[in-house]
């Protein structure tokens, strides 16, 4: 394999990591509060607002229903507005983030709804405000599940990032398509796939390790 190709692979890996890291970060910044709000605004919950909850839920579902490749193309005007250009690796972060936010929000929502309602009751009995309950009870208690959810989101983003070649985004997926498919160099395709598998494995293991570290509950099976 030529040195040139090795350089291309290293560069592409860096671009993938760059897109995934930034979009995962931004997805969390917006998805965590959105998911938390979706959980606590349900009827009868801490900040019960059924109407707002339903509307937000519809928006989230709609975004999640659009296939990623269509989303990428459909939001090109928005991408240009935000990133200044609609072409390239940095521009690709916009659709990745738009896809990540509702996904992460739903994962966070589920994690928070799993928190024992007895804990919310105990905090209310202490005189906690809803915001204190969210910050000091719900998020810390849901953290192991949130960590696993974010791991899942990052793995999905690695997959999505392979499709951004459609709008001139680079990275491993784009390299695989251009060399492996269009120039018919199956070994490049193979190496790209191996790197992706290794990346996903690393992310998954790291996520599980962190989740285990923050989880102070009794191990499953031993019971409470």
């Amino acid at each position: 394999m030529s040195a040139n190709l090795i350089n291309l692979l290293i560069e592409a890996t860096g671009q993938t990591l760059y897109m995934v890291a930034i979009s995962a970060f931004l997805g969390t910044v917006f998805g965590l509060p959105l998911g938390t709000y979706l959980a606590v605004s349900q009827r009868g919950e801490l900040l019960s607002a059924p109407l707002v909850n339903t509307v937000l839920g519809l928006v989230v579902n709609a975004t999640r229903s659009v296939p990623f490749i269509i989303l990428v193309v459909a939001i090109i005007p928005f991408t240009r507005l935000v990133a200044g250009t609609s072409i390239g690796t940095t521009a690709a972060i916009v659709p990745l983030t738009i896809a990540a936010v509702p996904f992460i929000a739903r994962l966070v929502e589920n994690a928070i709804r799993e928190v024992d309602s007895g804990l919310i009751e105990a905090a209310r009995a202490m005189g906690a405000t809803p915001l204190q309950i969210i910050r000091k009870v719900l998020i810390p208690e849901a953290l192991p599940a949130i960590t696993l959810g974010l791991t899942l989101a990052v793995v999905s983003l690695i997959g999505y990032s392979a499709m951004v070649g459609a709008v001139g985004g680079e990275g491993l997926g784009d390299l695989g398509i251009r060399y492996g498919y269009q120039r018919f160099m199956p070994e490049v395709m193979a190496i790209v796939v191996v790197i992706l598998i290794v990346l996903v494995q690393l992310v998954q293991s790291l996520g599980e390790w962190i989740a285990a570290r923050v989880d102070k509950r009794a191990p499953k099976g031993r019971g409470q």
Partner: peptide
């Protein structure tokens, strides 16, 4: 103050 049957302690 209040105490509960299932303790309701924060596991974290």
């Amino acid at each position: 103050g209040m105490i509960f049957q299932h303790f309701n302690l924060l596991s974290s």
